[in-house]
Design a binder for these strands. Structure first.
Lengths: 119, 119
DNA sequence: TCTTGACTTGGAGTGTACTATAAGTAGTAT
DNA sequence: ATACTACTTATAGTACACTCCAAGTCAAGA
């Protein structure tokens, strides 16, 4: 069983140690097991969760939503339907955001092209 | 020359009146002309700017960046190159964000499909 | 043994972007 | 004239997501 320090996790996922502790406090990850000195030892399964949270956070899903999802997850199989509904809702929001950003991207392209042609 | 009230602009672009005044104070739009009672009268050209700002803001460009762009714009033709460079930089950042969100979108899709199949 | 460095906690502080409040004015309806 | 509504300003407050700080612990190396 591989154990990884907070430092290593922070480097691996480009998150600060403070952020990792913050996510844990908020219940987005963990609870992470600790050694006899009280130092965190991240396990393989923790890393999957961290990767998921990081990906969703950088896509703009809020801490609150992720917290809710993980709460449901920890409550067991009976919440599968609620979890799916939550994800579907977030998917719609995410799609809207992506569309909005694509639109801005096209506008930026257009403006940049205009500047280039003018030269 | 058409004149539009802040109320109408707010409704048209789904921005609060406070936000419109805030953007103006920050120099992202305007300065908006006022009637003898001191009330804002938005003109056609103001609306184009508002639409641009709204689009870029909802795509995640910061107030600071937009402020800088508009400052350069107001300084005249000599800043065209700087403006283009600024937009190109933001375009790269925006592309990265879109890619990141697409990735999250795929992950969400995958998870949702998993829940659906399980049923 | 002493120092160094990385860790721990709880709580305070920060940046960004609004958003709300208070106090006042101006124009319209009764 | 009075009430109502929408506007104005300046400034304070809020939400979110970190980010930093102080004070202390622990293990390893000189």
């Amino acid at each position: 069983m591989v154990k990884i320090t907070i430092q290593e996790v922070a480097e691996k996922y480009d998150l600060s140690k403070d952020t990792l502790r913050y996510y844990e406090k908020e219940g987005l990850i963990g609870p992470i097991s600790k050694n006899k000195s009280g130092i965190r030892e991240y396990q393989e399964e923790d890393l999957n969760r961290i990767e998921f949270v990081k990906c969703m956070r950088s896509a703009g899903l809020s801490i609150a939503v992720l917290k809710e999802y993980i709460k449901l997850y920890d409550e067991g199989d009976s919440t599968k339907d609620a979890r799916m509904k939550l994800l579907e809702k977030e998917r719609v929001l995410l799609k809207e955001k992506i569309d909005c950003m694509e639109e801005a991207y096209q506008k930026l392209n257009y403006k940049i092209e205009y500047y280039k042609k003018e030269k």
